[in-house]
């Protein structure tokens, strides 16, 4: 078994597409219309185009909003992405106007930071211990 796809709920798929590609630097993998206005929209890392896809899923269910808003209030991220240098990525994203709820924090071998994806979620970036 392997993890092929994971997802985050987003307020607005068009806005999410822009943020996840133009700001974060992922590339679009699939974009298929589903129903009247929704899309099966996935992105991948340019470093691993055949790797795990991230589905930018429309926030359809009212319970999803409550769940997500409660996590955001406590600063809890819904996904984690790996970067080589958290501090450098923090500076780059901040320069692009991204809001962080947790600045880079070194905790032993791991450094993490948490930002707002502008589509309703908090995302953690982390260096992987080598």
């Amino acid at each position: 078994m392997k993890i092929h796809l994971t997802s985050v709920f987003v307020d607005d798929q068009a806005k999410a597409e822009r943020f996840y590609t133009e700001i974060l630097g992922f590339v679009k993998k699939h974009d298929v219309p589903v129903g009247e206005k929704d899309r099966w929209l996935t992105v991948v890392s340019p470093e691993d185009p055949d790797g795990t896809e991230l589905l930018l899923e429309p926030l359809g269910h009212p319970a999803a909003r409550t769940y997500r808003d409660t996590l955001v209030e406590d600063g809890i991220p819904l996904a984690q992405f790996a970067v080589d240098d958290v501090r450098a990525e923090y500076e780059r994203l901040r320069g692009l106007g991204v809001v962080f709820t947790q600045e880079p924090l070194e905790m032993g071998p791991v450094t993490t930071a948490v930002f707002d994806d502008t589509c309703g979620n908090l995302i953690q970036i982390a260096t992987q211990p080598r």
């Binding site: 406590d74 600063g75 809890i76 991220p77 709820t101 947790q102 600045e103 924090l105 905790m107 032993g108 791991v110 993490t112 948490v114």
Partner: peptide, 17 residues
Amino acid sequence: EKSGQTLFEICSRLSMK
């Protein structure tokens, strides 16, 4: 050390540090 932390950050510091 740093004022203005979310619950998540406080929990991370307690468990990881």
